[in-house]
Amino acid sequence: MRVESYNTLAEAARAMGPDAVFMAGGTLVMRDVNAGTSAGRVVRSADPALTEIRATGDGFSLGSGVTMARVLAHRDLAFLAPVARAVGGPQVRNMATIGGNIFAHHPYGDFAVALLALGARVVLAGQGGAKPLDDLLRERGRSGGTSPIVASIEVPRPRDPRAFGFVKVSRIKPKGVSVMSIAVNLPRDGGRMRGARVAFGAMGPAPLRASAVERVLEGQSLDAATIARAAQLASDGLDPPTDALASAWYRREVAGTHLRRLLEKMERG
């Protein structure tokens, strides 16, 4: 195994190849390195752009190397604090990056679930423009070839902080891994939901949108009848795995209940 460190992200991106893995906080990559099962080359970069947090017109541009602890310490990112706090224990939060969370395998990726619901876009190193996180998550792990490096993530600020809700369901408090996590973003226009986005984590090979739920919510007001219909369709189109924490059956059974509780809490405001 070889470790390569590059001053700029552009150089790191050029160094990537089918035999290389990019390492950010390393909380997952180092497990493989320790076990001797990592890729032949580990690519790192100390580019200061990786840890930049910038306010943009309608939200924030977050360097992919921003850690959960940095998110928690940033006042303007308070809407993301409950999400960052849900990841691991204090030491993990000091190391774990938001970029790494997008590529974290099951049952991890709680932060990516929130980014997906918020409609985040990702900027890839060495490529112009941003693309929807939806696309990156869909392609993730599918291509056998060179994996791209995420340079930064553009996160729109929810217009009303109460429009964004997040819950992580776990068995061990305060730092168990996810049975599932749910993030919802319900912008409202005259009391009606417009552009509702609902995302689930640990309910498929990567964080997934619950399109059936989104269709039920769209154009409605958040009332008991709408919430009941949304809860019924919660696991529609999801593909939950069975693991040591819960079976696929159990995850399907309880998804509606957890979604209902989250929506009810948001309805109460």
Partner: peptide, 12 residues
């Protein structure tokens, strides 16, 4: 800041 030394590369 606290870090897990088992998941930190020495050269870092």
């Amino acid at each position: 800041e606290t870090h897990l030394s088992c998941l930190t590369m020495a050269e870092a």
